[in-house]
Amino acid sequence: MLINIIDVGLGNIGSIEHWVKSCQLSPKRVTNVSQLTNDPIIIPGVASAGEYMDRLSSLKLDKEIIKKYQSGQKIIGICLGFQIMMNYSEEDSGVRCLGLLNGATKYIKDKKTHNGWEDFKVDTRKVKHNAFFSKKKQKKVDGRVYFNHELMVELVEDTSAHILSNGITSHVFKDNIFGMQFHPEKSQQTGQDLLKLII
């Protein structure tokens, strides 16, 4: 299967490509609207929200991603890619984002950062209202995932998010969206198991 990877000249595209290939899937770098197919879309991480949204906007990819979301296409956001799914981000003095999820991205309190590994479990039978798990033989992923960030997502009235004990939103499945604050592409075997589960 083909996987669209948004490439606006920012973010760790190479690592995402490797992750996709490691699961016998075919990554496709998307640098303009005409290259987008009807396959799942990954919005990668490692950049700042302001610069990333500027580039998405100048390439008109922001509006196209919203259209694809509205048409039911699977959208996967990783770290910054997850954060810009919100309405707004505090980064770069405040940035209007894609608004795919109702919430905001804020700095972790007291200028703290979140670096390291956390336990991760997902059981598809317990996740409701999403497009990712239909007809899957594999039902569970159980392992650990790698976090490295200084901003965090705060969703409004959303019970589909998984929150860590330190208050940080780890990930959310909602309809055809899967957003994750951690880096699955750097989460070794768990990251690969997760991609196989959602694609």
Binding site: G14, H18, W19, K21, S22, N148, E185, K186, Q188, G191
Partner: peptide, 9 residues
Amino acid sequence: KDTPISTPL
């Protein structure tokens, strides 16, 4: 850049 690793670097 093309070294395929999935470990934080």
